[in-house]
Computed example of a mutant assay.
Amino acid sequence: MKTMREEVFGYMQKKYKAKPEYLWARFPEYAVFRHADDQKWFGIVMNISYDKINRDKSGMVDVLNVKLDDILLRDLLVQQDGYYVGYHISRGNWISIVLDGTVPFDAITNLIDVSYNVTASKKTKQKIRPPKEWLIPSNPKYYDIVHAFDNADVIDWKQGAGIKKNDTVFLYVGAPVSAILYRCKVTEVDIPYDYHSSGLTITKLMKIKLIKRYKPEQFTFERLKTEYGIFAVRGPRGVPNSLSAALKGK
Rank of each mutant, 00 (worst) to 15 (best):
Y22E: 06
M12P: 06
D194A: 01
P216L: 09
Y50P: 12
L171I: 15
G238N: 14
I208P: 00
I145E: 03
K225G: 05
V177F: 06
Y214C: 06
N93Q: 14
V8H: 04
D144K: 14
N241H: 13
W24G: 00
P216H: 08
G101L: 08
P240C: 14
G92W: 04
N93H: 11
R183H: 07
H147C: 08
K141T: 14
V233H: 04
I202G: 07
L23F: 05
V98I: 15
D56G: 15
K141L: 13
N54K: 11
K225Q: 13
D81F: 02
T203N: 15
Y11A: 02
A161C: 09
V8N: 00
D37I: 06
G160H: 09
A245W: 09
V45N: 04
Y142D: 15
A25I: 10
D144R: 13
K57M: 15
K248P: 07
T124S: 02
R213G: 02
E7C: 11
L243Y: 09
L23E: 12
R183D: 00
Y87I: 09
P176S: 02
T102K: 08
D190M: 05
Y195L: 15
T3G: 15
V8Y: 02
T203I: 07
T102N: 12
Q218H: 05
T220D: 07
E7N: 08
G174K: 01
K165Y: 04
I95N: 06
A107C: 13
V78E: 05
D69S: 12
F33V: 01
W157H: 03
V146Q: 15
D106W: 06
P140N: 05
V85Y: 06
K17I: 06
S121Q: 02
S90R: 14
T226D: 11
G82I: 06
A120C: 00
A107I: 09
R74N: 08
I44N: 03
E222W: 00
E6W: 00
L111D: 03
V169W: 00
K209D: 00
Y30N: 12
D106Q: 14
N93I: 06
F42G: 01
V78S: 09
K14I: 04
S58M: 04
